[in-house]
Simulated assay, not measured.
Amino acid sequence: MTSAVHSELVRHRVVVLCLPGVLPLELGIAAQIFSMNPKYELVVATQGRVEPTAHQTFALTGTEGLDALERADTVFVPGYEDLDAAISNKVLTAVRAAHERGSRMVSICSGAFVLAAAGLLDGRPATTHWQVADRLRKLYPLIDVQPDRIFVDDGDVLTSAGVTAGIDLCLHLIRIDHGAAAANTAARGLVAPPRRAGDQAQYVERLRSQPTGHELAGVREWMLDNLAEPITIDVLAARVHMSRRTLIRRFRDDTGTSAMAWLNDARIDRARELLETTTEPVERIGRLTGLGNPASVRAAFHRRVGTSPQEYRSLFRQKVTY
């Protein structure tokens, strides 16, 4: 048998590690995409003989146990329900050992917490679902958490946001392993977009940082009521009778970000709302929110949301009754 023929017969072994409370849809993403592709061998691994899925909707019997990770080319960790549940030492040891042997490690959504607990994300960029990104950052401060990414490829360790971002990451892996044509074929089978770059933003509910302090709550409310106005640090400092330096420091203490960054995100949030719920043209939305002319609105959206205002509207436009 020639080496070329042999290489065609050796399939890339994908092991999906399912913890108790695994999210069924995220388990299904990796399972379906790689089980359908003849270039991959799919194994579902569990620690116990039977594992419950999220909300105890049904139980899952894995095809193999944790020893499956010893022979994995890629290990997938889908999201799971209870982030307060302790991850067993057996699971963490198996995950670390797989990485040390050279397995590619991949997480979907909250599966990043398993990689983090195993120490595989320390000093690396990583993402997860935006709703739990702050929690990941607080629990594991050595990780460069990037909550506005749909996935992060850091070579041998890759992380993604939830559900559809997991599809994007799986297609990205097929593209790496077998080229664009193979990834596009897989995308057509899934009726999914063939490619979304990892730096596309997650469509989070709200972009602006949520305050942890209340000292400047009044001025933040005023900012939200006057987004169309030319607001500067000097204007804000005068309203609260503070020096520029004091206002800058206390605003960051309250929100974790600068006043101008918070204001810009508030303006984009308002623009998103108008795009979703009205037929106002982008030019008028720019005036109403203080984002400026249409070119400035488009630039702000691409930078912060990862798409254009028109594309965002086509995705999220609601029917408005007049």
Rank of each mutant, 00 (worst) to 15 (best):
G179Y: 07
G179S: 09
A180P: 02
A181Q: 12
A183C: 08
N184W: 04
A186N: 02
A186E: 11
A186T: 10
A186Q: 10
A187Y: 00
A187E: 06
R188V: 12
L190G: 02
V191P: 00
A192P: 00
P193M: 11
P193G: 06
R196T: 13
R196W: 09
R196K: 12
G198W: 03
G198C: 10
D199M: 04
D199E: 15
A201N: 06
A201F: 02
Q202P: 01
Y203D: 14
V204C: 09
V204D: 06
S209T: 06
S209E: 11
S209A: 15
Q210A: 13
G213S: 09
H214E: 12
H214N: 14
G218H: 10
V219G: 04
V219F: 04
R220D: 03
M223D: 01
M223A: 15
L224Y: 03
D225W: 03
D225H: 10
D225A: 15
N226R: 10
N226C: 10
L227G: 01
L227A: 08
E229Q: 15
P230A: 07
I231G: 06
T232C: 06
V235K: 09
L236Y: 01
A237I: 03
A238W: 01
R239L: 12
R239G: 07
V240W: 03
H241E: 15
S243I: 07
R244Q: 13
R244K: 14
R245E: 15
R245Y: 10
L247I: 02
L247S: 02
R252E: 13
D253Q: 14
D253E: 15
D254M: 08
T255H: 04
G256T: 05
G256K: 04
G256P: 02
G256H: 02
S258V: 01
A259C: 08
M260S: 07
M260V: 08
A261E: 11
W262R: 01
L263F: 07
L263A: 09
N264M: 12
N264K: 10
D265S: 07
R267S: 05
D269Q: 04
D269H: 06
A271P: 00
E273R: 09
E273W: 14
L274S: 04
L274N: 06
T279P: 02
E280T: 12
P281G: 09
E283V: 12
E283W: 05
L291F: 05
G292A: 08
N293I: 09
